[in-house]
């Protein structure tokens, strides 16, 4: 009772609060200075969609259009044609609309050949809406997205 009263008179509760904030002033800061230091994306990060080839540089996509059906946002427009070399369906048209994509990851789970995967790239800001539309050539994983979105600027 008396202790509580004394605590109140000597503003102990307020001083305790001040001591906490004082302590925080001298602890490590958590801010990441973005353009200089880019946070590493996690293993399963769902960034921009890319089409992958297998180890020997062969096409994996068989234009089955399962991703197109799985996509909730209707991002894909794929057309396939029978390839004479390996007698498999290969995409001749693979239009993908970044401006519709919500990065839910349903397409990469649906893909039977692991040809498409959401990559770790997350920097997709641009002033030009036409850059949010990708054709087959631009969908491959070796396509330079850095140049695509940010011109020749350094990485």
């Amino acid at each position: 009772m008396i202790i509580n009263f004394l605590k109140k008179v000597f503003l102990i509760d307020l001083l305790q609060g001040l001591s906490v904030t004082l302590k925080y002033q001298f602890t490590h800061k958590v801010t990441i200075q973005y353009p200089e230091k880019v946070k590493e994306s996690r293993e399963r990060f769902r960034g921009i969609l890319r089409v992958y080839r297998d180890g020997e540089g062969k096409q994996l996509c068989i234009a089955c259009k399962i991703c197109q059906k799985a996509c909730p946002e209707d991002c894909f427009d794929i057309e396939g044609q029978k390839n004479t070399e390996d007698n498999k369906m290969r995409p001749v048209k693979f239009d993908w609309k970044l401006y519709r994509c919500s990065f839910c990851g349903l397409c990469q789970e649906a893909c039977p050949t692991d040809a498409i995967k959401l990559s770790k790239e997350f920097r997709m800001a641009t002033r030009d809406k036409s850059k949010l539309f990708f054709t087959l050539d631009q969908m491959y994983s070796d396509y330079d997205l850095n140049k695509h979105f940010r011109g020749e600027s350094k990485k």
Partner: peptide, 10 residues
Amino acid sequence: RVVAFIQLRL
């Protein structure tokens, strides 16, 4: 700056 430091920002 100080308020940011209190809040663990820069």
